[in-house]
């Protein structure tokens, strides 16, 4: 299978005037096209940091990152924008919805950035909101929604642009088992259609749905427990 994401010896340091925090340390990782990878690990282990670098939303301090064998570091800001709005899509751990936009305005953001006409955008938005069961909240504002509802809006927003790679940071973290199962069902069907998924989770049962589970702890990839997932991709 073709490699879609590859990082080599990657490190990331958060530094402020008073503190210096090694969030990722010498991490190397390959994700093949169409793969479903779960990342687990303790809180503060560096999972979100890794995901933000994979999503081209932050820059590493050391090491290299390739998307489709092209090094991200050398890309222009325009090419990066195209990656973020196209191949890649991120579901943030903190949802990151724009508070003064309605649900539908939030969801259509990626489509708007691609200059897709309004009518077409609305069609896609409605389809995506229906998929995550949020269609009835289409005109609400984020602060009128529960955490779980906001999470599902954030999922719809990431799915809108039909990304090749979905980077999901605790996508079921705020959902009850019922809804979590539903979201997982969506992910699995995307996976079956060929979408590459990298999903961060605390829940080992959910991680078990992936083909491969990676454990990251103290900023390091723990190679000892890299396991195959419960189901295999044909």
């Amino acid at each position: 299978m073709r490699q879609i994401l590859r990082i080599e010896n990657l490190s990331k340091v958060y530094s402020s005037a008073t503190r210096y925090q090694m969030a990722l340390c010498d991490v190397s990782l390959c994700v093949s096209e169409g793969e479903f990878v779960a990342i687990v690990g303790p809180s503060g282990g560096g999972k979100s940091t890794l995901l933000s670098i994979l999503g081209c939303l932050d820059t590493p301090d050391q090491g290299r990152y390739f998307v489709f064998d092209e090094e991200v570091n050398w890309k222009s800001s325009k090419q990066l924008s195209r990656l973020r709005g196209g191949v890649l899509a991120t579901i943030f751990q903190g949802f990151e919805l724009v508070p003064h936009w309605t649900v539908s305005e939030n969801v259509e953001l990626g489509l708007r950035m691609r200059s897709i006409p309004k009518r077409k955008r609305m069609e896609i938005v409605i389809a995506m909101l229906r998929k995550v069961g949020m269609l009835h909240n289409i005109h609400k504002y984020p602060n009128e929604l529960s955490g779980g509802e906001q999470q599902r809006v954030a999922i719809a927003r990431a799915l809108c642009t039909a990304p090749k790679v979905l980077l999901a940071d605790e996508p079921t973290g705020n959902l009850d088992p019922e809804n979590a199962k539903e979201v997982l069902g969506i992910f699995r069907s995307l996976h079956e259609q060929g979408t590459t998924i990298v999903m961060v989770t605390h829940d080992m049962e959910i991680a078990g749905q992936a083909q491969r589970v990676l454990r990251i702890q103290g900023g390091r990839l723990d190679n000892s427990i890299v396991t195959g997932g419960s189901h295999d991709h044909a």
Partner: peptide, 14 residues
């Protein structure tokens, strides 16, 4: 934050 969200979903600098 809004700018960050814009950029995350493909907004260009321009």
């Amino acid at each position: 934050k809004e700018i960050g969200i814009y950029l995350s979903f493909g907004a260009t600098r321009i």
